[in-house]
Amino acid sequence: MRKLIESTFMSIDGVISSAEKWSAPYWDEEYSAYARELLFASDALLLGRETYEGFARSWPRLESVEGDYAVRMNTLPKYVASRTLTEATWNATIIKGDVPDEVAKLKQQPGQNILKFGTGELDTTLLEHRLVDEYHLWICPVVAGSGGRLLDGIDTTHLKLVKTTTFASGVVVLTYTPGDASQGR
């Protein structure tokens, strides 16, 4: 069974929106190596509509700059959860209808991990249906001050910390798996 991996940038005050505006100063060699490891351990991407549209506009132009990372981003199959998207042109399949059921089916297929980028309504759906196997939360040493926060409105959900990765830039990646408070620490 494939694992669904969530990779999300957030500020120390929990903001996830407009991460490209405040996370870019921390994109260094350690960041790139970690991101590369996640991407190359995956053979499919799961995206919401907004993330898909943003990536589809930028990644095809980045191959000359980003090399094999961009080639990998561009060639991996993408699954896009959307109620409004009618056409996908960037090597993507639109998931309409019962997103949790379709994602569960994707996870049952043979292959590597499914890497999920972006944040929003899809995160809530995936968490509520217990479909995420690992969360990689990239905490950037910045206070964003305002903006959307990861999983606002979700009921109390316990996770288990399985790994902490600290970069010289001050970024800390916290890796969690689903857990529960009754499990020993």
Rank of each mutant, 00 (worst) to 15 (best):
A70Y: 03
C140M: 15
I139N: 06
M1G: 13
L45I: 09
N74C: 12
T86R: 15
A104M: 08
V162H: 01
A70P: 07
V80T: 07
M73I: 12
L45N: 01
Q112E: 15
S32I: 10
T93S: 14
L137E: 04
L137Q: 09
S58W: 14
D133L: 05
G145D: 02
P60C: 10
T124R: 09
P178N: 04
Y69E: 07
D155Q: 13
T93Q: 11
A33V: 07
P77L: 03
V173Q: 10
A19V: 07
V171K: 02
W90G: 07
K107F: 08
K3H: 11
G153D: 08
G97T: 05
G184R: 06
E134P: 07
L4T: 01
G148I: 01
Y26P: 08
K116D: 04
V80L: 10
F167H: 15
A144M: 05
I114H: 06
V99T: 14
E20Y: 10
M10H: 02
V143R: 01
A81T: 06
K105H: 10
L174E: 02
L159H: 11
S64H: 14
E50W: 13
Y176G: 08
R149F: 00
G118E: 01
E29T: 13
L4E: 02
V173M: 10
D68K: 14
G179F: 08
L151T: 02
A168S: 10
P110K: 04
L126Y: 03
L39C: 03
V65T: 10
A92Q: 05
S7R: 07
F55D: 03
S23A: 15
L161D: 06
D101E: 15
G184M: 12
L46T: 00
R149A: 00
Y34Q: 13
V15K: 00
R57S: 12
C140K: 02
T164Y: 02
L115R: 00
K3I: 09
G170A: 08
L127V: 14
A81D: 03
E128P: 11
A92P: 12
P141Q: 01
A168N: 11
L39S: 04
E20C: 05
